[in-house]
Simulated scan of single mutants.
Amino acid sequence: MHDTPLRNTTTIAVVDDDESVRTALEGLLRSSGYKVRTYCSALEFLDTNAPAGTHCLISDIQMPGMSGVQLHEKLDAMGFKIPTIFITAYPHLGAGTPRLVACLPKPCEADSLLNSIEAALRQRH
């Protein structure tokens, strides 16, 4: 995978109710040169100004309160067209989601995730 010039200015939001998943993804993405913000729920993500500064969203699908699919639909309705990657034990639940770059199974391979992020950033620009 080649280095993207915008990588160090790119913010990726990770939304997952599992702290160990958030921590692992944050470490991988930071070591790959991305700015990372983590959120324990879709509602926490929405309650901040995070959507405006997010270049790519990585989210679990099944979370308490609001699912990843519902989060993506809410962002879309709010006018935020954020390329999204789902990482989930239930990949079939993400089928047909607009601007869905990938729906990766948990646990996902680092290379698959990083390639999906690169695809998301190309889609955004």
Rank of each mutant, 00 (worst) to 15 (best):
F80H: 12
A95E: 15
D60I: 03
A120Y: 03
K81W: 09
K35W: 15
A119N: 11
L93V: 03
E118H: 15
I117H: 15
I117T: 05
R7Q: 15
V21S: 08
D47R: 14
A13Q: 03
A50M: 02
M63L: 04
L29P: 11
A89D: 02
T88W: 02
L71V: 01
S116Y: 08
C56G: 05
K74Q: 10
R30M: 04
H72C: 08
G68C: 02
F80N: 04
A13F: 01
I12R: 07
L43K: 14
L46F: 01
D16F: 05
V21T: 14
L75S: 05
T23N: 12
F45A: 05
M78P: 01
E19W: 09
D111I: 12
K81H: 14
K81S: 11
I61N: 02
G94S: 07
L43M: 09
L93G: 06
P98T: 14
A110D: 11
A120L: 13
E26T: 11
L104H: 06
A119T: 15
F86T: 06
H72Y: 11
L28M: 09
D60E: 10
K35C: 08
Q70E: 15
G79Y: 11
L57P: 08
A95S: 15
R7P: 04
Y39T: 03
A77N: 05
K35I: 08
I117Q: 14
L29H: 05
S112T: 13
E118I: 11
D18G: 00
D18Y: 07
D17Q: 03
E73N: 12
G79A: 03
C40K: 10
S67L: 09
S59P: 15
G33A: 01
D18C: 00
I117F: 13
I82P: 00
C56W: 02
C40W: 13
L93D: 10
L100F: 13
Q123T: 09
T54A: 07
Y90R: 10
S112F: 06
H2T: 12
E109R: 13
H125L: 07
V14L: 10
T88M: 00
Y34G: 15
D76E: 09
S59A: 04
S59D: 01
Q70P: 00
M63A: 05
F86L: 11
A120Q: 09
L29G: 08
I61G: 06
